[in-house]
Design a protein around this nucleic acid. Structure first.
Lengths: 225, 225
DNA sequence: GTGCGCTTCAAACGTATGTTTCAAACAGAC
DNA sequence: GTCTGTTTGAAACATACGTTTGAAGCGCAC
């Protein structure tokens, strides 16, 4: 820990603890004792626990959304009017995430887990905060997805986007644990980049699957081309 | 609410509140006041809050895992030695879930949300409980998946299974909210069966995607067949 | 050195939580 | 009806939480 500034120490400790245990399960006392600062420092510098949660997200998300906007700009310029493909759009996103300057070796995976938690834990204030602050890059991503999958109906696309978000958020949210399991079971090391490299083709294939079939009768033998 | 038994009233209330708000965010007082029973009844009948959480899961999961075992038996018998296909395996699972006798109209979606939370909220005791009690149908499902995707390397299969779990748990865990959004934005009603009918092809396609590509250099134009 | 913001600190506050207690109410057997 | 084991009830318990307080410490201009 190079920096000795109180605010950053709190943010570092909070980020890690939130990622490990969730928001409600992490108390201010855990954070302040890990950060080696006084308990009151959180309320002094941030105002409240919820505001601290927002600050943790903002510290990563604000530069990230700027990077992402640039990546989308570059992509659309390169495509010269034609809408980018699904793969290009997904790669623009993951590359932006992976290439963010990272505070420490855990870096991106901690934050991916936080994003997963943000979606999962029903913290109303957090969802509201994220929607208010980062609606623009999100809508832009959605628009690109729409243009990249014109063959899908709105309803199909809607659900498949949810499936994509789920696979991503869920995997990222527990990627440390999953990597450990893999390490132990198969003796394989895995970087976050490699996970992304596996995830993107999975998502793209699912997104472009043949039209959803109706519910088949029990006992029918369904097969995939 | 037909039943007036205290234990069931507690379980009903707890199930719904846990699904709405998560485990840590739901207090025993919320549960007992919703169930219209005395606060002490929870500790009297279940012993602790954690034990109540386990009981909520067991009430659904025990009959479900029996149903699932039957479905797998039937499937393997029908396939007569040959390993069932990926689609058959996935459908056996979703059919078993959807056909479970449901306590009320919300039924399965509440429980799907609970399963999602179980994976996401890092409640150590819950994960331990689920692994101990329901490891058998889980391992069997994993074995069927392995036999249905012999073309995948162990590592690829491992990660893709995580992606599937993520898409499923995540979507199901917020399916009520998602359905409401869809209802409002596009005016479309969606049943849990229809979600499953969209999810399974997505998962199957992702699972059988072409081999994961390596990380492409920035600016490369990748496209999917 | 004195005075003035800003920051830290120990302590306390009020509230909410899970759990325990023990008396009252109840149900069924005899 | 009386006894007995089980279930309910109101109240209290101990603990943990987020937040607030007010004094002490600090750096720096003057």
């Amino acid at each position: 820990m190079a920096q000795s500034d109180t605010v950053d120490r709190i943010l570092d400790a909070a980020e890690e603890l939130f990622a490990d245990r969730g928001f409600s399960e992490t108390s201010l006392r855990m954070i302040t004792s890990k950060a080696k600062v006084n308990l009151a420092a959180v309320n002094y510098h941030f105002g409240s626990k919820n505001a601290l949660i927002h600050a943790v997200f903002a510290r990563f998300l604000t530069p990230f959304s700027a990077t992402l906007e640039n990546a989308f700009d570059e992509l659309e310029e390169r495509c010269d009017g034609k809408p980018p493909t699904l793969n290009q759009t997904l790669w623009a996103l993951t590359e932006s995430a992976v290439r963010m300057p990272q505070r420490n070796e855990k870096g991106i995976s901690i934050f991916m887990r936080l994003l997963g938690l943000a979606y999962t834990q029903s913290q109303g204030h957090l969802r509201k905060f994220l929607e208010q602050e980062y609606s623009e890059p999100f809508s832009r991503f959605m628009r690109l997805l729409k243009e990249a999958t014109p063959q899908l109906s709105s309803v199909d696309r809607y659900w498949r986007i949810q499936f994509m978000l789920g696979a991503t958020a869920f995997t990222m949210s527990s990627s440390d644990a999953l990597r450990d399991i893999l390490q132990n079971k198969l003796g394989v090391e895995t970087t976050i980049q490699e996970i992304a490299a596996r995830l993107v083709p999975f998502l793209a294939a699912g997104m472009q699957a043949e039209d959803a079939m109706l519910i088949p009768p029990a006992g029918s033998k369904v097969s995939v081309a």
